[in-house]
Amino acid sequence: MTETMPSTPARPDGGPFRHELYPYRGEEQFLSGTLEYIHEALEADEAVVVAVPEDKTSLLRGELADEPAVTFVNATTAGSNPGRHIAAWSAWMNQRGEGGRPVRGIGETAWRQARSAAHLSELRYHEWLMNRAFARSSTWSMLCPYDAADEDQDALRSLSRCHPQIRREGQYAPNEDYLSGNEYSFDALAAPCDPFQELSYTHGDLAAIRSKVAQCAADAGVPEDRLPKLAVSVTEIATNSIRHGGGHGTLRIWAQDATFLCEFRDSGYIPDAMTGRSRPEANQIGGRGLWLVHQLCDLVEIRSTPDRGTTIRLHMDAPQR
């Protein structure tokens, strides 16, 4: 069962932004494909930003010495929540692309370190959203190496649907599997784990929501120093329900597999899938609520359709005691 989410229109081929999936097997193929991509960039006087796992970084550094056009960034600084990654990439690419210089990014997600099925699902959605986020970036392109050694064809197919191009044997080509429409096929949200607590809220209930969530989060083992982040996050989501989601909503709270979850449901609709994924400007009037939530929570799942309303799940790690 899947849900769909409309987004801003995108060209079937992904637009001028080139976003290539590069399935490889083993270190040798990783190096050959990424180095080829980098050398293409250097020959065209383009800058390169590399954000790959630490072991792959070491491999590439060993081959590139001190090439000044290539910048290695620590992908973990953006945090584990995929909802933060577009802003991080945007900042890295902007820094290296000063003066309109074309920039290529190489980003490999540590897929096997995904913390849960929900995390994996949001990582894939992030890859698909990159096409929307950078659709008008004619000077940016991106290569996503993917270690296909485990022969998991389903995983490869799922990821393949998020990339408009695919690179094989040094050439990129349109990817026929690419999900080119304006709707993304989400994995359905898993059912809340029993026991869960549920409360309805409307104007005047923000303090009660914070109080309830703080109590349940502490009981579930969320560290004390993370409770303020949760307080801000639940305030923002409940505020959105009250202001834009029909004036009221329902909150469910539960803990599952070392994760504390808050699920908000309301009748509102978030038409722009990019909401909350771009860093706000100082003079921007609104649009900070979901941005803050993405920055403060460990994972955020958003499902919103005009007919079924909006469901937002906030995940916060709750280490087992």
Binding site: P228, K229, A231, V232, R279, P280, E281, A282, N283, Q284, R288, W291, L292, Q295, L296
Partner: peptide, 19 residues
């Protein structure tokens, strides 16, 4: 201001000379 207020202020994009 405490840590969460200062964190949110920076994240919200207000920590600039224009503000």
């Amino acid at each position: 201001a405490n840590e969460i207020v200062r964190l949110c202020w920076g994240l919200a994009g207000y920590a600039t000379a224009d503000v």
